[in-house]
Amino acid sequence: MWMDHPGWVLFGTWVAALFTLGIATFLYKDNPVYKFCEAVFVGISAGYWFVSYFWQTLLPKLGYPFYAGVKTVFVGPAEWGWLVLLIPGTLGMMMLLRLVPKAGWIARWPLAFIVGYTAGLRLITFLQSNAMTQLQNSVQPVVRYNESGQFLGWESFNILLVTVGTFAGLFYFFFSQEHKGVFGRVARVGTWFLMITFGAAFGYTVMGRMSLLIGRLDFLLADWLHLIR
């Protein structure tokens, strides 16, 4: 393909490198170069996502199956399963009526449908993954022995810590109870557990971000400037 030509590859690398530096100028302050890069980035990505949704969602999930279904009616043997596609198709059309000022209110119905089904669907997902699976894994003995009956001190301590943290955290997330007295003290322990967890997560995520930075510097120094190999 013409895009694989070395000249185009070089051109692409230069464009990417200059835009990287253009976005990085924001670290100094807002400036015309950043505004230009921002506008290009937003415009291209919005266009890209529009095309992506059209070809990867709208056509394969609605357009092609609908066309194939209608075709069976005329060519045979007739199948009627495609009729169910009229529901999302109609909802989509109703959503587009937002563009017509007098019929804009019709767009509220598909929105209500989306919010409603999200609430129902996610309730089950959350109940399973965030509640039941967590609960199942939290049920374990806080005292551990190995097969020869020897007490495993560190392992027991770790499990005890997790169990206490789980309880204290749950106390913190009780909303219908004032955080006073014993309840309040346990909830405060929960806050400590949360903050320690956040501290550890902060360090862990910063490490991940450093790898992103290194990846970008690697692009600039190796792919663009060829200063490192």
């Binding site: 976005i23 924001f26 807002d30 921002e38 980035f41 937003v42 990505s45 919005a46 996502w49």
Partner: peptide, 20 residues
């Protein structure tokens, strides 16, 4: 306003809005 679905395109625009 709709900006873009792209995560970092969106954040670039929001940062711009913030400083301006």
């Amino acid at each position: 306003n709709y900006i873009t679905d792209e995560q970092f395109g969106y954040v670039a625009a929001v940062d711009g809005i913030m400083v301006r």
